[in-house]
Computed example of a mutant assay.
Amino acid sequence: MTPPPIRYPLPTLVVLVALGLLAWRGRDWVASVSEPVWAGIDRLRSGPPFPESTEPMRREGAIARKVLVLREGVSVTDVPGGAVVESIRRRIFADVYDVWPLGGTPTHYRIGNRQPIGWVEADAVLPWDTRLVVRPVGSEIRLRTDPADERGSSLSLDGTPLPIVEWGSDAVRVAVWDRAEPWGAVDRWGWVRLGELPPDAIGVLLTRSELLELLRIAIEPERAGAPPPRVLAMLGMVDSGASLTAEQAEGFRRTLPDSMVRIRGLADGGSVEQLGRINDFWSPDVMWSGIAYQAIPLSSIPGE
């Protein structure tokens, strides 16, 4: 029997056979090759991975960066803008572990105490590494856009302390509260020159238990130890149980403006008398989660 005639040239047959083999055996091979390619494309689309630090971020002076949670019930997400994993029921001070994005103004902070909790939106917290405040001594201060601003604008004080969130050689940057929501929402930011502030305008926000511990140290200065109690008060570490080395304390002091470091304490038992008076006439400036805080003058705390 005569075989049927070949209707296609040999090269065409080779191509057809190769395509058949590819369709038969090449599906898995194509999938194995394309999977990492598509994974790379997905990574490019989603951008860099979100950071997952296990230790708090540090500012100059090896001091942990912190935030104040501005309201109760703040949602915590697994990634910036991701799924809600829990809620922070109480207003707290928290350590900052990561920020997002990695450059520019943060839109999210990864926060926690002793270990990360998760990500919160930037408008839910106040970046505030210390307890330093400008106390409302007098009726107004001059608020500037930057330390070199020669004009500035007058800011009327309403009795609410202004958190010091940053500082330069002769000025501090403060958060000005929304008058309708003090301690809950920031209206604006500005710089205040230290040379224009009245005496005792620089203070620290303390709880009553912290005040009593400072009073005990003032009465028994030989038990103060190191670091100085004033540094501990600035950092909110008077009775926190957290440790601070002498090197860390000195590193932090070196970052502060000279005029702030040189604020003299009260001599001849003056600290005991003033701290005792503050305790006797305790008048909190703010209370949240059942804990009251008052801004007291930095000069009243021993250990300059």
Results as ranks from 00 to 15, higher is better:
Gly190Tyr: 06
Pro284Asn: 03
Thr105Pro: 10
Ile117Glu: 14
Arg27Asn: 11
Pro136Cys: 08
Ser87Val: 15
Gly81Ala: 04
Leu10Glu: 14
Gly40Glu: 02
Arg173Gln: 13
Pro229Val: 08
Leu126Ala: 00
Leu298Gln: 00
Gly269Trp: 11
Ala224Met: 06
Asp98Ser: 02
Gly265Met: 02
Gly104Ile: 01
Ala180Cys: 06
Thr105Ala: 11
Gly236Pro: 09
Thr245Met: 00
Glu121Pro: 06
Ala201Gly: 05
Asp129Ser: 06
Ala62Gly: 06
Pro9Cys: 09
Gly81Pro: 08
Pro227Ala: 08
Ala246Leu: 10
Pro229Glu: 05
Ser46Glu: 15
Ile296Gly: 00
Leu132Trp: 03
Glu273Trp: 05
Glu220Pro: 02
Gly159Ala: 07
Arg114His: 10
Leu21Tyr: 07
Trp191Cys: 04
Gly241Asp: 01
Ala31Glu: 10
Asp28Tyr: 10
Arg144His: 13
Gly184Cys: 01
Asp239Lys: 09
Val120Gly: 12
Pro198Ala: 01
Asp146Asn: 15
Val204Leu: 00
Gly112Ser: 03
Thr12Gly: 10
Ile41His: 11
Gln115Pro: 05
Leu162Arg: 04
Gly40Asp: 10
Ser259Glu: 14
Trp24Thr: 14
Val96Trp: 02
Ile219Lys: 13
Thr160Ala: 01
Asp239Gln: 12
Val99Asp: 06
Gly73Cys: 05
Glu250Cys: 01
Ser75Lys: 13
Val99Tyr: 07
Gly61Phe: 12
Val133Thr: 05
Ser156Lys: 14
Leu157Gly: 02
Asp178Ser: 10
Gln115His: 14
Pro4Phe: 05
Tyr97Met: 10
Ala148Val: 13
Leu126Tyr: 00
Val37Gly: 12
Gly225Phe: 09
Leu21Ile: 11
Glu140Ser: 15
Arg131Val: 02
Glu181Ser: 14
Ile63Pro: 02
Gly61Asn: 12
Val231Cys: 00
Leu126Asn: 09
Val33Cys: 11
Gly81Phe: 06
Glu150Arg: 12
Gly81Met: 09
Pro11Arg: 01
Ile117Lys: 11
Arg89Tyr: 04
Arg135Tyr: 11
Val76Asn: 00
Asp28Thr: 15
Ala83Thr: 15
Val272Thr: 06
Arg135Leu: 08
Asp170Cys: 09
Leu197Pro: 04
Ala31Leu: 13
Pro163His: 00
Ser259Trp: 04
Gln294Cys: 07
Leu215Trp: 13
Gly190Asn: 03
